[in-house]
Design a protein around this nucleic acid. Structure first.
Lengths: 342, 342
DNA sequence: CTAGGCTTCGCAAGCGTTTGCAATATAATC
DNA sequence: GATTATATTGCAAACGCTTGCGAAGCCTAG
């Protein structure tokens, strides 16, 4: 049924070996025979069986991506970058949605190992037990963790946005706009990325020295959480002139609370976010935020993977820190000198 | 290095065949030996090589999805549904972003055929030449087209939202709210899905008989297109009491134009969309729209594929029509009886 | 004309499985 | 206890490809 090397060989009156060599452009076959083989292969519409090829070469030309949910636009963007990079290198990408369930994650990984994928991109190994992580890091396939701080576990590569620099940039920006009373909405202390943003932000404020008053509030790091925090705070304290939300979702919540409290963004209160999700450019007012290079992160992760796939068994983990950048839209406004001086 | 059947066989003092049979739960091996094999396999941390298995069985336990861009939330949702269905059946899903480029599409398909995927979900085969389509439909692997009308090309299965019923439902809803002057914004006549929605919509209006005045306007079927159409129309005609946009993106454009013309939604003009994209629930006012069961469509597509993968070589194309439903939010409002009677 | 060196090609093993068939062991029957 | 049926197991081929090795074939040089 399916046409194989053997069919071509028979048709050309040569051995399968020569056919194989011809097709793979390998050295050691006369130009004339090669040409003949090629035309016959084309005529028969030959398609090499990658399973067979993979079996003998030990390479599947496949990568995989295990993320919590592709519907999250952050991952969709990452996936697109990763897939583009893979495609360019002649690899395919298997998509796995884990919902961060440890069980699903491990099941996926096992399946993938059985399929002999040459590398795995992972959202996180946080939910896994120590022995499971051990198993992964010793599985032999390169694994890169997406947007997770390196130190977590040995044995994994990472690709990470520079959260510290981003926080710092947000802080500097607000200070540059002459804000002096700034609230910072963020999540729990253990959340590595968020913590880095906070550290960077604080550094910026310290750098400004003098009379900057800031308040850091922790809560659920989503829209609803930020909404609640902000609502409560606005009742209890004198309003700030600016808010730095640790991610865009929180910024949306904060903005809603601000409007409901009868103030305006950015006229009364400036708001800056972090991530630059698509919605940030769509809502009113368009949100000024720190952009994470999601597409590039996906691409970089695949680069790392492929690099390591080249030297089976003898690569060591690698860490890439990706630059972030400020994208100015309309949710921040400078404090006028007069207002400031009064 | 990697542990194989042979290793287990040696360790247990049996033949690889018995090991294989034990592991696959096949009939014909004594309970005692099987148990022994299993424990040894576990101890050695054995992972079957799917490439080898696939080579002999001819089945790769892999499906693929070729879509234009995973960053489009519509496809992300489809992909999630498809992947969940695949996972449940023990299959993996390869993700391919084609950007609708005919060349990329064909390259992907060829790679996938070489990897012996057992089925392919495709966005569209529209850009392909006749011979390319022929090649696909005769490739031997089942292919299902996502959200494309069946008749297009023979040989492909389809999974399609019931656009006709959706259009009809939108029409009936507006009539039920006592609207009598309705504009319908849509795309070019050749666009199959949009055309169906229009047909359904017209049917509803006809059903209402009497004094319903409707106007159908065609243009670019995106936000900007609808914005321009609507802007122009509002200057030239007396405003309608309701607008049916052929998709949500167009509804957004229409709403913007309406606001800019100094009218309100839904107080002055009701707007209903189609698709139910995520943004529909987020904008102000939240958009009433026809929901397409995207997740379910992805799931259904995989069901079709797997069903056909079961009978290699002897399945025939299959078409699934998915129900849509109206989701009422806040962009539509009934005409008061008084206003209506006056 | 013969020896040595290249180039071109075929042979055959091997990658890790599954599976039909034959061989052996065990159980059942009388 | 012999005979037959049945449950286990091993043997070996096959899946479609790559690749080391050696056999021809051809060319060049001495």
């Amino acid at each position: 049924m399916r046409v194989t090397l053997r069919d071509i060989a028979r048709e050309c009156g040569v051995d399968v070996a020569t056919v194989s060599r011809s097709l793979n452009g390998a050295y050691g076959v006369r130009e004339k025979t090669r040409r003949k083989v090629l035309t016959v292969a084309k005529r028969l519409n030959y398609r090499p069986n990658r399973l067979a090829k993979g079996l003998v070469t030990g390479r599947s030309r496949t990568l995989a991506m295990v993320i919590s949910d592709i519907r999250n636009p952050f991952f969709a963007e990452l996936a697109r970058g990763a897939e583009d990079a893979a495609y360019r290198a002649g690899y395919e990408l298997i998509l796995c949605n884990s919902d961060l369930s440890a069980e699903k994650q491990m099941q996926y990984v096992h399946s993938l190992l059985e399929k002999r994928v040459e590398g795995i991109l992972m959202n996180s190994v946080a939910g896994l037990s120590h022995s499971e992580r051990q198993e992964l890091s010793q599985s032999g396939v390169p694994i890169v963790l997406l947007n997770r701080p390196p130190a977590q576990v040995q044995g994994f590569s990472t690709v990470l946005a520079d959260n510290f620099a981003g926080g710092e940039r947000a802080g500097n920006y607000l200070i540059h706009l002459r804000h002096r009373v700034i609230w910072h909405l963020t999540g729990p202390r253990q959340h590595g990325n968020l913590a880095e943003r906070t550290r960077g932000f604080r550094k910026a404020l310290e750098g400004a020295g003098t009379e900057v008053a800031s308040l850091t509030i922790r809560g659920h790091h989503n829209t609803e959480g930020a909404y609640q925090m902000m609502k409560k705070l606005l009742r209890q304290h004198r309003a700030p002139t600016a808010v730095f939300a640790a991610n865009d979702a929180m910024a949306f919540g904060a903005i809603r609370a601000i409007f409901e409290a009868g103030r305006r963004v950015p006229e009364d209160i400036s708001v800056i976010g972090f991530d630059d999700v698509e919605l940030a450019g769509i809502i009113r007012p368009p949100l000024t935020t720190i952009h994470q290079p999601k597409y590039e992160m996906g691409w970089a992760a695949v680069e790392v993977l492929l690099q390591q796939a080249e030297r089976p068994g003898q690569w060591s983990p690698q860490h890439r820190l990706m630059e972030v950048r400020l994208v100015e839209r309309e949710s921040c406004r400078p404090i006028s000198r007069r207002a400031h001086d009064q």
